[in-house]
Design a protein around this nucleic acid. Structure first.
Lengths: 361, 361
DNA sequence: CTGTTAGCGCATTCAA
DNA sequence: TTGAATGCGCTAACAG
């Protein structure tokens, strides 16, 4: 009969290999205990004598032992990790969402892993699949404006997934949305309250749900005040397009005096165009942006904007996800709609607010 | 003797459980083949008959089978995933690094997972450990200005790790650094070339390596031109501190005419302070920022800045990581130092560049 | 409180 | 080409 068990032989072989990472077996052998004991030191320290624990910990330190996450996951069937797929890591709204999610997951002892889909549907789907395969406790998705089939498939397979900044409510999963229409309404309404009477909306492309909703809201506010709304559709939401649109608007004879922009960079561009033409902001023209990006507050003329509650979006989404994780039998998918709010800064605040009364001759 | 093998019994039990995710065994049974064949369809499609492959694929689709990443990882001992731990996901430099790393990993068929340490050493170490435990192919770290012990420990255990935006070269791992001193030099030199003679440096806290290096570079340029350099140490790198520092500088009798700022937000603050006091930028005062954040180009007065090659940093770091992954026996840890460059915009460009010659009476 | 062992799901042998 | 068996490293259950 062989003196050494097969197991011992394997250990010996592994020990011979230089680069091999130590396993619980190696730790157990060095500490002179059984593997179960090592596992207990790691997972149920209470069940182990102080003395034994010390011995094991010393062995762990000496060997530089690191648990194998894959093996743990395989046994447990799940992980304490949440995956978040972001459509654009360069946009501060999504960064805020990530921060909110981080805070909420950390509070529950979970780790948050991020992936950037970079406005690429294929990448988005690939990362969703990766997180699904990796047995994450759940998934968060800040999607691009496209089909959510991959997310739905994951949801149907039983892995909790929450869509944050959702384009629309979805029966297959929980969503966190923001009332974009309200945002557009607030922006236009604010400009009207500041005395603007010749309104314009700058933003695009209009096939994006969010942009169109903002436009609809702005239009509603204009209609309520019996005002027209000139619409300039832009190609993108950046500074350059804002400058172009602003230039076009301000060149017209019947000059607008209030512009709702669908993003803060657009507002910057519009304000730059105004400055070039000697149109004073906010005295001759009031402007409001959207998203409360960093540059809105840091411009020379601080820009009024519609702030999305990014942090709360991340927190709420995580909250919904955790509820779903807890496998509550009567969990119903729901869509939480959060409200944006106006942050009034210089770009829309006349020194002496012009009201209707003052403007009548 | 029991008619069913234990394995079959287990399958049956699992099939009964509603939520259970299908395994290769389930797929094999449904397709009427062995598990090895399913595995081959997944990993070596060439070794399988077209007909068999179709059958298996149909079964996979019908069951909604998804591979278990943990099991695959356990067998393979590694993953095709790279982890990147970022110190601040809200800073566009690190976002650029992430983009560069994404591009480079994707080009090699690898997935990039992100984690945000949020300038928190404990979080940074925790995420490093998570990625290490998760058997990632390698790790990238954009660290906070603190000890790199955790990273070094991982490197010594044999897991490839590369530090991006490294504070200093390190014998234990590959690093990608940027010549901060050169950046400071370029900034100051540029202002001097624009005619500035009374220079100041605004930035802090100075215990941060990067900031101090930038100051040293600026000082060198000033010294070479036999000029003084006033230093205002700020608490942080934000707009408010820039405004305060700018106000203090511009209130003094011997007013500065050129300011090197250690960040773009600081430059915005300085420019705002100048505007408040009627000091014209760039005519009376030239200003340069640092980092080429989005707001630098999008300000009303576009801000000259020192651009860090974020994308390239991410790419180069990934490149180094991949080299190390390939286990080249004569791989030597190296530190690649990249060079920042000046982007001259309005804030430092006088309409008629003032040269020494023109200034002499 | 400790030691032994089965098995998580997959990939990869090796035989047929 | 296909099918059955082994083990990756760990946890948990159970016997001592």
């Amino acid at each position: 009969m062989p003196r050494n068990s097969p197991s011992d032989a394997r250990r010996g072989r592994r020990a011979a290999q230089e680069g091999a990472r130590p396993s619980v077996q190696d730790v157990a052998k060095l500490a002179g205990v059984a593997v179960g004991t090592v596992s207990n030191v790691l997972n149920n320290p209470d069940r182990v004598t102080e003395f034994t624990r010390r011995k094991v910990e010393a062995a762990i330190a000496e060997l530089g032992f690191v648990r194998n996450f894959a093996a743990r996951t395989l046994v447990a069937g799940t992980t304490n990790t949440v995956g978040l797929v972001l459509v654009d890591i360069g946009n501060s709204l999504f960064v805020d969402i990530a921060r909110g999610a981080e805070a909420a997951t950390a509070a529950s002892g979970l780790k948050l892993l991020l992936a950037n889909s970079d406005v690429d549907q294929a990448k988005q789907d690939a990362y969703l699949e990766l997180f699904d395969q990796a047995q994450t406790a759940g998934l968060l998705l800040a999607p691009l404006d496209g089909p959510l089939d991959a997310a739905r498939a994951i949801a149907r397979r039983g892995r909790p997934i929450v869509v944050v900044n959702a384009p629309a409510a979805d029966p297959d999963m929980c969503c966190v949305a923001v009332d974009e229409q309200l945002g557009g309404y607030l922006a236009a309404h604010h400009l009207i309250a500041q005395g603007a009477r010749r309104l314009a909306f700058v933003g695009g492309p209009l096939h994006l749900h969010a942009i169109r909703d903002r436009l609809d809201g702005a239009r509603q506010a204009a209609t309520e005040a019996s005002l027209d709304l000139t619409v300039i559709e832009t190609h993108a939401l950046n500074v350059r397009d804002g400058r172009t649109a602003g230039g076009n608007l301000l060149r017209q004879s019947r000059r607008v005096d209030g512009i709702v922009c669908a993003s803060d960079p657009l507002a910057v561009g519009v304000i730059n165009a105004a400055a070039e033409r000697g149109v004073g902001v906010p005295d001759d023209l009031v402007v409001v942006g959207y998203d409360n990006n960093h540059l809105a507050s840091e411009s020379l003329i601080p820009i009024s904007t519609i702030a999305q509650p990014g942090l709360r979006m991340g927190e709420v989404a995580t909250q919904l996800l955790l509820e779903e994780t807890q496998n509550d039998p009567d969990h119903r998918h729901q869509t939480v709609v959060l409200e944006p709010h106006l942050i009034a800064r210089r770009s829309s605040q006349r020194r002496r607010p012009t009201t209707n009364r003052l403007r009548t001759p």
